[in-house]
């Protein structure tokens, strides 16, 4: 089964690039620029992984994470220098996220999925 990955970032370019880099047959990437849409979609179709940007319009990534399904592994991606979050993300990745890092995460979950 392909890995379903959701990506939330208010920067459209970053959503596009994420999808371009990591989207494939094995990794199904869906990008969102609005938190509400992510939440709806997650409810509809539970992804395997969620990558959330921290600095969003009107909210932050960890706020979004709190309302999502807790079983879904979540990763926080941010360009902030200092970041404080109370949510137990699997990992916090600094922007620009190293591709190898993200690939490794995807691969891991792919394996797990298998």
């Amino acid at each position: 089964m392909p890995l379903k990955v959701f990506y939330l970032d208010d920067e459209s370019d970053l959503c596009e690039i994420f999808a371009d880099i990591y989207g494939s047959d094995e990794v199904l990437v869906e990008t969102f620029q609005e938190a509400s849409k992510l939440i709806e979609r997650t409810a509809e179709s539970k992804p395997d992984l969620i990558f959330l940007d921290y600095r969003l319009q009107r909210t932050t990534g960890d706020e979004v994470a709190k309302v999502l399904d807790a079983t879904i592994p979540k990763f926080l991606v941010s360009g902030e220098i200092q970041l404080k979050t109370s949510y137990p993300f699997v990992e916090i990745i600094k922007k620009p996220a190293p591709e190898e890092k993200v690939f490794e995460i995807l691969k891991r979950y792919q394996s797990a999925l298998k």
Binding site: L14, I21, G79, I81, P96
Partner: peptide
């Protein structure tokens, strides 16, 4: 600085991501 870092890291992520998919 926090905001500025964010404002720089985002375009930087775009640059690095963009450059990495150019070959694609």
């Amino acid at each position: 600085s926090a905001g500025i870092a964010h404002e720089i890291n985002n375009p930087l992520a775009i640059i690095t991501g963009g450059l990495s998919v150019l070959t694609k």
